[in-house]
Design a protein around this nucleic acid. Structure first.
Lengths: 230, 230
DNA sequence: ACCTGAACACCGTTCAAGT
DNA sequence: ACCTGAACACCGTTCAAGT
């Protein structure tokens, strides 16, 4: 945590610059693309300078996660005069869209929540969702359960919806959404109907569904269920 | 996929042996403990032999995940004469317990589902849950949605409940469950009640709650919600 | 205070060579 | 067919040295 002092020599590198460059590398090529060497080259500096500002690579990944997640939550214009249910949806979609834009978050978000339950990411998400749980009229003894259930679902769905092709460096990157669904749908329907009756039956629905809509259906289902709690 | 032939020389290493040793390393020290060198030493062999049998490290990790998950699902004695809701609970708990026993699964399971939607892990879980969704009486057009919502919740909750302390080699490993909750609870209650009213309010519930019970409450909430679908 | 860059101790993968 | 193990091309982290 460097402080600026009057007599400093030449601060040419900042924590923000490093984070921005790191996020660009991550967005471009996944977690494998974020190496200290690639980062130093892009910033025309040395490995030591990066360590000085952001610490270890793992800390950098955590900081990048924090930056993206808190920005996503903050940018959301909590719509005026909305119901608690709507506000849950807005927050949930903010996270959904953040992961869509930064696919490396799928793994990192889980890691951060598991390892750092008092960090700004965990606390930020929990507080945001939790306040709506209160407003929803969930009985007080169930507040923690209700918020946990929502957060578990939101992060689970959001992580599993992230399309990741692999960190292969020269890869095409974006695989077409339609192609991906078509391929999975075809292979599901090709499964033996005897042992996999369900997969076989839903192959078509898989092809035609919309991730975002399905995600919102899930939120609705849980909110309905929570209304019956206790 | 090596085949045994009559005229073979000396098969001293098998895919199963490698997988067993790999899972032991993973259970002992997390993903960081599974290195090709550590594995070769433990099996008194060379790096090439491992590559020959299981391919790349990433393939090994996928195979280990597959082994553990399918075993967990298969071992479950689907209780005779049970309701669909009970069977969902049984399958969900099987996954919950598998992750508790193998904490490295938290990250790997997400990865596998995201990257390989036609693999035995994804298909196995989906089929198992999906059949109960059908039995539950969910309308046909909603089968895929309903199963997805359950799977997203189950894997999300299960991943986020995994306690991971870090891959530090000589670490104590198991952090006491009670201590962990006490610490998190204390820090939540220490947050400013002005900006974090919810976290402040639920600090106590966090300390006293039971992961497994809360997880089951979540399943119940979703099943209740699904009953209202369409 | 801030930055350099070489040195170090690791990685995973490959592959000619052996049996 | 199965295995060896050295060689290779990478990693992240550290740290004396410079300004």
């Amino acid at each position: 945590m460097p402080k600026r002092r009057a007599g400093r020599r030449n601060q040419v590198l900042s924590r923000e610059q490093i984070l921005t460059a790191a996020i660009e590398l991550l967005d471009g090529g996944g977690e494998g693309a974020l190496t200290v060497r690639a980062l130093s080259e892009r910033l025309s500096t040395g490995a030591g300078a990066i360590a000085y500002h952001v610490g270890k690579r793992d800390d950098l990944l955590d900081a990048a996660t924090e930056t993206v997640v808190t920005a996503a939550l903050a940018e959301t214009p909590a719509p005026a005069r909305s119901t608690p249910a709507e506000e849950v949806r807005v927050a949930a979609l903010a996270l959904f869209d953040a992961i869509t834009a930064h696919r490396w978050l799928a793994t990192r978000l889980t890691l951060q929540i598991v390892r750092n339950p008092v960090g700004p990411v965990t606390v930020g998400i929990f507080e945001r969702i939790g306040q709506q749980v209160q407003a929803l009229g969930v009985p007080r003894e169930r507040w923690f359960d209700a918020a946990s259930i929502l957060v578990h679902y939101i992060l689970g769905a959001v992580s599993q919806n992230a399309r990741v092709e692999g960190d292969s460096p020269g890869a095409d990157g974006e695989v077409d959404r339609g192609e991906y669904f078509d391929a999975a749908s075809a292979r599901w329907r090709a499964l033996a109907p005897g042992t996999y009756p369900f997969m076989h039956a839903i192959g078509g629905q898989m092809r035609d569904h919309d991730d975002r809509e399905q995600f919102l259906t899930g939120i609705t289902v849980i909110l309905d269920g929570l209304a019956r709690l206790h």
